[in-house]
Design a binder for these strands. Structure first.
Lengths: 192, 192
DNA sequence: GTCTATATCGCGATAGAC
DNA sequence: GTCTATCGCGATATAGAC
Protein backbone atom coordinates (compact mmCIF):
# COMPACT_ATOMS: atom_id res chain seq x y z
CA UNK A 1 0.00 0.00 0.00
CA UNK A 2 1.04 3.53 -0.62
CA UNK A 3 0.81 4.87 2.93
CA UNK A 4 1.93 3.24 6.12
CA UNK A 5 -1.04 3.15 8.49
CA UNK A 6 -1.74 5.26 11.57
CA UNK A 7 -0.05 8.46 10.47
CA UNK A 8 -1.45 10.28 13.51
CA UNK A 9 -0.12 7.70 15.96
CA UNK A 10 3.30 7.72 14.34
CA UNK A 11 3.44 11.48 14.58
CA UNK A 12 2.47 11.37 18.26
CA UNK A 13 5.07 8.75 19.10
CA UNK A 14 7.81 10.50 17.14
CA UNK A 15 6.92 13.78 18.83
CA UNK A 16 6.98 12.40 22.36
CA UNK A 17 10.24 10.57 21.71
CA UNK A 18 11.89 13.71 20.42
CA UNK A 19 10.46 15.89 23.17
CA UNK A 20 11.91 13.47 25.67
CA UNK A 21 15.32 13.46 23.99
CA UNK A 22 15.70 17.17 23.23
CA UNK A 23 12.89 18.97 24.99
CA UNK A 24 9.75 20.43 23.49
CA UNK A 25 11.02 23.80 22.32
CA UNK A 26 14.18 22.39 20.76
CA UNK A 27 12.22 19.94 18.65
CA UNK A 28 10.99 21.19 15.28
CA UNK A 29 8.03 19.94 13.35
CA UNK A 30 10.22 18.87 10.42
CA UNK A 31 12.21 16.69 12.83
CA UNK A 32 9.02 15.04 14.02
CA UNK A 33 7.71 14.38 10.55
CA UNK A 34 11.08 13.13 9.33
CA UNK A 35 11.08 10.53 12.09
CA UNK A 36 7.50 9.56 11.33
CA UNK A 37 8.24 9.35 7.61
CA UNK A 38 5.81 12.09 6.66
CA UNK A 39 6.00 15.68 5.47
CA UNK A 40 5.65 18.85 7.47
CA UNK A 41 2.42 19.65 5.74
CA UNK A 42 0.88 16.40 6.91
CA UNK A 43 1.62 17.22 10.53
CA UNK A 44 -0.57 20.29 10.37
CA UNK A 45 -3.37 18.29 8.88
CA UNK A 46 -3.58 16.18 12.04
CA UNK A 47 -2.73 18.79 14.63
CA UNK A 48 -3.83 22.39 14.59
CA UNK A 49 -0.40 23.38 15.88
CA UNK A 50 2.69 21.94 17.50
CA UNK A 51 1.20 22.24 20.98
CA UNK A 52 -1.74 20.02 20.19
CA UNK A 53 0.38 16.87 19.99
CA UNK A 54 0.72 17.11 23.75
CA UNK A 55 -2.97 17.36 24.52
CA UNK A 56 -5.55 14.86 23.38
CA UNK A 57 -7.60 17.20 21.23
CA UNK A 58 -11.07 17.54 22.71
CA UNK A 59 -11.18 14.01 24.08
CA UNK A 60 -11.21 15.09 27.72
CA UNK A 61 -14.00 17.67 27.45
CA UNK A 62 -16.06 15.15 25.49
CA UNK A 63 -15.53 12.42 28.05
CA UNK A 64 -16.43 14.76 30.91
CA UNK A 65 -19.58 15.94 29.15
CA UNK A 66 -20.61 12.34 28.50
CA UNK A 67 -20.09 11.29 32.11
CA UNK A 68 -22.11 14.26 33.37
CA UNK A 69 -24.96 13.46 30.99
CA UNK A 70 -24.99 9.82 31.97
CA UNK A 71 -25.00 10.45 35.72
CA UNK A 72 -28.29 9.54 37.43
CA UNK A 73 -30.66 12.49 37.01
CA UNK A 74 -31.63 12.56 40.67
CA UNK A 75 -28.06 13.29 41.83
CA UNK A 76 -27.23 16.71 43.20
CA UNK A 77 -24.68 18.53 41.02
CA UNK A 78 -21.96 18.26 43.62
CA UNK A 79 -22.50 14.49 43.66
CA UNK A 80 -22.32 14.41 39.89
CA UNK A 81 -18.95 16.10 40.20
CA UNK A 82 -17.85 13.52 42.74
CA UNK A 83 -18.97 10.66 40.51
CA UNK A 84 -17.31 12.03 37.39
CA UNK A 85 -14.03 12.85 39.09
CA UNK A 86 -13.83 9.44 40.73
CA UNK A 87 -14.43 7.76 37.40
CA UNK A 88 -11.83 9.89 35.65
CA UNK A 89 -9.31 9.33 38.41
CA UNK A 90 -9.75 5.56 38.40
CA UNK A 91 -9.72 5.03 34.65
CA UNK A 92 -7.21 7.60 33.48
CA UNK A 93 -4.84 8.37 36.31
CA UNK A 94 -4.51 5.56 38.83
CA UNK A 95 -1.46 3.49 37.95
CA UNK A 96 -0.03 6.19 35.70
CA UNK A 97 1.35 8.57 38.25
CA UNK A 98 4.85 8.66 36.82
CA UNK A 99 3.78 9.23 33.21
CA UNK A 100 1.35 11.88 34.35
CA UNK A 101 4.01 13.63 36.41
CA UNK A 102 6.41 13.61 33.46
CA UNK A 103 3.68 15.00 31.20
CA UNK A 104 2.95 17.79 33.69
CA UNK A 105 6.64 18.60 34.02
CA UNK A 106 6.92 18.97 30.29
CA UNK A 107 3.95 21.32 30.18
CA UNK A 108 5.14 23.42 33.09
CA UNK A 109 8.57 23.81 31.54
CA UNK A 110 7.29 25.63 28.46
CA UNK A 111 5.38 28.89 28.33
CA UNK A 112 3.42 28.15 25.20
CA UNK A 113 2.37 24.80 26.65
CA UNK A 114 1.22 26.47 29.84
CA UNK A 115 -0.95 28.77 27.76
CA UNK A 116 -2.49 25.85 25.98
CA UNK A 117 -2.92 23.88 29.17
CA UNK A 118 -4.87 26.73 30.74
CA UNK A 119 -6.98 26.94 27.61
CA UNK A 120 -7.74 23.23 27.81
CA UNK A 121 -9.08 23.75 31.30
CA UNK A 122 -11.35 26.52 30.00
CA UNK A 123 -12.57 24.21 27.25
CA UNK A 124 -13.32 21.54 29.82
CA UNK A 125 -15.33 24.02 31.87
CA UNK A 126 -17.30 25.06 28.80
CA UNK A 127 -18.16 21.45 27.93
CA UNK A 128 -19.13 20.64 31.52
CA UNK A 129 -21.27 23.76 31.73
CA UNK A 130 -23.23 22.70 28.66
CA UNK A 131 -23.71 19.23 30.12
CA UNK A 132 -25.03 20.70 33.38
CA UNK A 133 -27.42 22.91 31.44
CA UNK A 134 -28.66 19.80 29.67
CA UNK A 135 -29.37 18.31 33.07
CA UNK A 136 -31.65 21.23 33.77
CA UNK A 137 -29.32 23.61 35.62
CA UNK A 138 -29.68 27.33 35.04
CA UNK A 139 -26.82 28.94 33.10
CA UNK A 140 -25.29 30.57 36.10
CA UNK A 141 -25.41 27.56 38.40
CA UNK A 142 -24.20 25.32 35.57
CA UNK A 143 -21.19 27.60 35.14
CA UNK A 144 -20.37 27.58 38.82
CA UNK A 145 -20.66 23.81 39.11
CA UNK A 146 -18.52 23.30 36.02
CA UNK A 147 -15.90 25.71 37.30
CA UNK A 148 -15.96 24.07 40.70
CA UNK A 149 -15.49 20.63 39.23
CA UNK A 150 -12.48 21.80 37.26
CA UNK A 151 -11.10 23.55 40.34
CA UNK A 152 -11.35 20.42 42.46
CA UNK A 153 -9.85 18.28 39.75
CA UNK A 154 -6.85 20.49 39.11
CA UNK A 155 -6.09 21.06 42.76
CA UNK A 156 -6.41 17.34 43.40
CA UNK A 157 -4.21 16.40 40.45
CA UNK A 158 -1.45 18.69 41.63
CA UNK A 159 -1.70 17.43 45.18
CA UNK A 160 -1.82 13.79 44.10
CA UNK A 161 1.29 14.15 41.97
CA UNK A 162 3.10 15.87 44.83
CA UNK A 163 2.35 13.15 47.39
CA UNK A 164 5.35 11.06 48.47
CA UNK A 165 3.50 7.76 48.21
CA UNK A 166 1.24 6.68 45.35
CA UNK A 167 -2.35 6.09 46.40
CA UNK A 168 -5.66 6.12 44.54
CA UNK A 169 -6.31 9.59 43.19
CA UNK A 170 -9.90 9.30 44.40
CA UNK A 171 -8.63 9.58 47.98
CA UNK A 172 -6.99 12.90 47.20
CA UNK A 173 -10.12 14.09 45.44
CA UNK A 174 -12.24 13.20 48.45
CA UNK A 175 -9.99 15.26 50.69
CA UNK A 176 -10.17 18.29 48.44
CA UNK A 177 -13.92 17.96 48.14
CA UNK A 178 -14.40 18.26 51.87
CA UNK A 179 -12.94 21.73 51.45
CA UNK A 180 -15.14 23.17 48.82
CA UNK A 181 -18.86 23.39 49.07
CA UNK A 182 -21.28 24.82 46.56
CA UNK A 183 -24.87 25.50 47.44
CA UNK A 184 -27.70 25.89 44.98
CA UNK A 185 -29.34 29.16 45.92
CA UNK A 186 -31.01 30.19 42.67
CA UNK A 187 -34.33 31.83 43.44
CA UNK A 188 -33.67 32.33 47.12
CA UNK A 189 -33.55 35.89 48.38
CA UNK A 190 -30.15 37.53 48.31
CA UNK A 191 -28.34 37.45 51.58
CA UNK A 192 -30.16 34.37 52.76
CA UNK B 1 14.77 64.87 21.95
CA UNK B 2 15.87 61.96 19.84
CA UNK B 3 12.84 59.68 20.27
CA UNK B 4 9.20 60.61 20.55
CA UNK B 5 8.08 59.72 24.08
CA UNK B 6 5.84 56.91 25.30
CA UNK B 7 6.77 54.28 22.75
CA UNK B 8 4.84 51.66 24.69
CA UNK B 9 1.67 53.73 24.77
CA UNK B 10 1.92 54.54 21.07
CA UNK B 11 2.32 50.86 20.27
CA UNK B 12 -0.70 49.98 22.38
CA UNK B 13 -2.87 52.62 20.79
CA UNK B 14 -1.76 51.74 17.26
CA UNK B 15 -2.42 48.07 17.99
CA UNK B 16 -5.89 48.60 19.37
CA UNK B 17 -6.81 50.89 16.50
CA UNK B 18 -5.69 48.38 13.92
CA UNK B 19 -7.28 45.47 15.74
CA UNK B 20 -10.54 47.40 15.70
CA UNK B 21 -10.23 48.22 12.01
CA UNK B 22 -9.03 44.86 10.67
CA UNK B 23 -9.31 42.36 13.47
CA UNK B 24 -6.55 40.94 15.60
CA UNK B 25 -5.37 38.10 13.39
CA UNK B 26 -5.31 40.19 10.23
CA UNK B 27 -3.09 42.82 11.83
CA UNK B 28 0.65 42.22 11.61
CA UNK B 29 3.27 43.53 13.95
CA UNK B 30 4.97 45.50 11.15
CA UNK B 31 1.67 47.28 10.54
CA UNK B 32 1.44 48.22 14.20
CA UNK B 33 4.98 49.52 14.38
CA UNK B 34 4.65 51.39 11.10
CA UNK B 35 1.66 53.26 12.50
CA UNK B 36 3.49 53.97 15.74
CA UNK B 37 6.60 55.12 13.86
CA UNK B 38 8.81 52.40 15.32
CA UNK B 39 10.50 49.25 14.13
CA UNK B 40 9.36 45.68 14.51
CA UNK B 41 12.24 44.97 16.84
CA UNK B 42 11.05 47.67 19.19
CA UNK B 43 7.65 46.03 19.47
CA UNK B 44 9.19 42.85 20.81
CA UNK B 45 11.24 44.82 23.28
CA UNK B 46 8.07 46.05 24.96
CA UNK B 47 5.84 43.01 24.48
CA UNK B 48 6.93 39.40 24.69
CA UNK B 49 4.64 38.57 21.80
CA UNK B 50 1.76 39.98 19.81
CA UNK B 51 -0.81 38.70 22.30
CA UNK B 52 0.64 40.64 25.18
CA UNK B 53 -0.49 44.01 23.79
CA UNK B 54 -4.00 42.94 24.73
CA UNK B 55 -3.25 42.03 28.32
CA UNK B 56 -1.60 44.31 30.82
CA UNK B 57 1.51 42.27 31.46
CA UNK B 58 1.59 41.09 35.05
CA UNK B 59 -0.14 44.18 36.37
CA UNK B 60 -3.29 42.35 37.44
CA UNK B 61 -1.59 39.51 39.34
CA UNK B 62 0.61 42.09 41.08
CA UNK B 63 -2.32 44.25 42.06
CA UNK B 64 -4.25 41.25 43.37
CA UNK B 65 -1.29 40.03 45.40
CA UNK B 66 -0.80 43.50 46.86
CA UNK B 67 -4.46 43.81 47.85
CA UNK B 68 -4.42 40.39 49.51
CA UNK B 69 -1.27 41.25 51.45
CA UNK B 70 -2.70 44.57 52.59
CA UNK B 71 -6.02 43.17 53.76
CA UNK B 72 -6.47 43.22 57.56
CA UNK B 73 -4.77 40.11 58.96
CA UNK B 74 -7.74 39.12 61.08
CA UNK B 75 -10.03 38.69 58.07
CA UNK B 76 -11.12 35.22 57.04
CA UNK B 77 -9.81 34.30 53.58
CA UNK B 78 -13.28 34.40 52.05
CA UNK B 79 -13.65 37.94 53.34
CA UNK B 80 -10.28 38.86 51.90
CA UNK B 81 -11.59 37.63 48.56
CA UNK B 82 -14.70 39.75 48.97
CA UNK B 83 -12.65 42.82 49.83
CA UNK B 84 -10.23 42.39 46.95
CA UNK B 85 -12.89 41.72 44.36
CA UNK B 86 -14.97 44.69 45.46
CA UNK B 87 -11.93 46.93 45.21
CA UNK B 88 -11.00 45.63 41.79
CA UNK B 89 -14.56 45.94 40.56
CA UNK B 90 -14.92 49.52 41.76
CA UNK B 91 -11.58 50.82 40.54
CA UNK B 92 -11.10 48.95 37.29
CA UNK B 93 -14.47 47.94 35.93
CA UNK B 94 -17.30 50.18 37.10
CA UNK B 95 -17.96 52.80 34.44
CA UNK B 96 -16.07 50.86 31.78
CA UNK B 97 -18.60 48.22 30.91
CA UNK B 98 -18.62 48.92 27.19
CA UNK B 99 -14.83 48.97 26.80
CA UNK B 100 -14.57 45.84 28.86
CA UNK B 101 -17.21 44.08 26.80
CA UNK B 102 -15.44 45.05 23.57
CA UNK B 103 -12.15 43.80 25.01
CA UNK B 104 -13.73 40.47 25.96
CA UNK B 105 -15.32 40.14 22.53
CA UNK B 106 -11.96 40.60 20.88
CA UNK B 107 -10.38 37.94 23.08
CA UNK B 108 -13.17 35.45 22.55
CA UNK B 109 -12.97 35.90 18.80
CA UNK B 110 -9.40 34.62 18.53
CA UNK B 111 -8.07 31.23 19.56
CA UNK B 112 -4.58 32.37 20.43
CA UNK B 113 -6.01 35.14 22.60
CA UNK B 114 -8.25 32.66 24.40
CA UNK B 115 -5.17 30.60 25.18
CA UNK B 116 -3.39 33.59 26.61
CA UNK B 117 -6.46 34.73 28.51
CA UNK B 118 -6.75 31.37 30.22
CA UNK B 119 -3.06 31.54 31.02
CA UNK B 120 -3.49 34.97 32.58
CA UNK B 121 -6.09 33.53 34.88
CA UNK B 122 -3.66 30.80 35.91
CA UNK B 123 -0.99 33.43 36.58
CA UNK B 124 -3.45 35.37 38.71
CA UNK B 125 -4.21 32.26 40.72
CA UNK B 126 -0.51 31.62 41.25
CA UNK B 127 0.09 35.16 42.50
CA UNK B 128 -2.93 35.05 44.79
CA UNK B 129 -1.86 31.69 46.17
CA UNK B 130 1.52 33.07 47.11
CA UNK B 131 -0.13 36.04 48.79
CA UNK B 132 -2.39 33.75 50.82
CA UNK B 133 0.59 31.67 51.86
CA UNK B 134 2.24 34.88 53.03
CA UNK B 135 -0.83 35.50 55.17
CA UNK B 136 -0.17 32.19 56.87
CA UNK B 137 -2.41 29.85 54.91
CA UNK B 138 -1.21 26.33 54.24
CA UNK B 139 -0.28 25.59 50.62
CA UNK B 140 -3.37 23.59 49.92
CA UNK B 141 -5.85 26.01 51.43
CA UNK B 142 -4.06 28.94 49.82
CA UNK B 143 -4.47 27.26 46.46
CA UNK B 144 -8.15 26.62 46.98
CA UNK B 145 -8.83 30.18 48.14
CA UNK B 146 -6.89 31.61 45.22
CA UNK B 147 -8.71 29.38 42.75
CA UNK B 148 -12.03 30.24 44.32
CA UNK B 149 -11.37 33.95 44.10
CA UNK B 150 -10.53 33.66 40.42
CA UNK B 151 -13.62 31.52 39.87
CA UNK B 152 -15.92 34.07 41.48
CA UNK B 153 -14.30 36.92 39.63
CA UNK B 154 -14.54 35.35 36.21
CA UNK B 155 -18.10 34.14 36.65
CA UNK B 156 -19.09 37.56 37.94
CA UNK B 157 -17.36 39.40 35.10
CA UNK B 158 -19.16 37.31 32.51
CA UNK B 159 -22.48 37.77 34.26
CA UNK B 160 -21.99 41.51 34.74
CA UNK B 161 -21.16 42.05 31.08
CA UNK B 162 -24.22 40.04 30.06
CA UNK B 163 -26.65 42.02 32.19
CA UNK B 164 -29.07 44.23 30.26
CA UNK B 165 -28.59 47.22 32.56
CA UNK B 166 -25.29 48.53 33.85
CA UNK B 167 -24.99 48.38 37.64
CA UNK B 168 -22.02 48.27 40.00
CA UNK B 169 -20.04 45.10 39.39
CA UNK B 170 -19.82 44.63 43.16
CA UNK B 171 -23.53 43.78 43.18
CA UNK B 172 -22.99 40.96 40.72
CA UNK B 173 -20.02 39.73 42.71
CA UNK B 174 -22.09 39.68 45.90
CA UNK B 175 -24.70 37.52 44.18
CA UNK B 176 -22.16 35.04 42.92
CA UNK B 177 -20.51 34.89 46.33
CA UNK B 178 -23.71 33.75 47.99
CA UNK B 179 -23.39 30.67 45.80
CA UNK B 180 -19.93 29.54 46.61
CA UNK B 181 -18.69 28.73 50.05
CA UNK B 182 -15.25 27.57 51.06
CA UNK B 183 -14.54 26.12 54.48
CA UNK B 184 -11.16 25.89 56.12
CA UNK B 185 -10.82 22.29 57.25
CA UNK B 186 -7.06 21.78 57.36
CA UNK B 187 -6.17 19.62 60.33
CA UNK B 188 -9.68 18.42 61.02
CA UNK B 189 -10.32 14.70 60.67
CA UNK B 190 -11.37 13.54 57.25
CA UNK B 191 -15.08 13.22 56.81
CA UNK B 192 -15.85 15.72 59.51
C1' DG C 1 19.06 47.14 14.47
C1' DT C 2 19.63 43.29 11.07
C1' DC C 3 19.21 38.60 9.86
C1' DT C 4 17.11 34.21 9.94
C1' DA C 5 14.87 30.07 11.56
C1' DT C 6 10.67 27.98 12.06
C1' DA C 7 5.72 27.67 12.56
C1' DT C 8 1.82 27.81 9.87
C1' DC C 9 -1.14 27.50 6.08
C1' DG C 10 -2.88 27.81 0.99
C1' DC C 11 -2.95 25.50 -3.43
C1' DG C 12 -2.70 22.09 -6.97
C1' DA C 13 -1.29 17.41 -8.16
C1' DT C 14 -1.40 12.51 -7.24
C1' DA C 15 -2.12 7.94 -5.65
C1' DG C 16 -4.78 4.52 -3.89
C1' DA C 17 -9.41 3.09 -1.66
C1' DC C 18 -14.27 2.02 -2.35
C1' DG D 1 -15.36 7.81 -11.06
C1' DT D 2 -15.35 9.97 -6.74
C1' DC D 3 -13.24 10.64 -2.26
C1' DT D 4 -9.70 11.12 0.84
C1' DA D 5 -5.04 11.19 2.47
C1' DT D 6 -0.72 12.80 1.19
C1' DC D 7 2.80 15.29 -1.11
C1' DG D 8 5.55 19.13 -2.78
C1' DC D 9 6.11 23.76 -3.25
C1' DG D 10 5.69 28.26 -1.76
C1' DA D 11 4.47 32.34 0.93
C1' DT D 12 4.38 35.04 5.19
C1' DA D 13 4.62 36.39 9.97
C1' DT D 14 6.34 35.70 14.38
C1' DA D 15 9.98 35.58 17.32
C1' DG D 16 14.64 34.87 18.65
C1' DA D 17 19.68 35.02 17.62
C1' DC D 18 23.64 37.75 16.54
Amino acid sequence: MRWAPDARGRLERAAFDLFGEQGYAATTVPQITARAGLTTRTFFRYFADKREVIFGGDEIPRAAARLISEAPPELEPIDVIRLVLDEVAATRFDGRREETAAWRRMINADDSLRDRDARKRADLVAAARTAFVDRGEAQRSATIFAETGALIFHVALDAWLAEPEARPMGDTIAEIMTWVCVRRLEGTPLGS
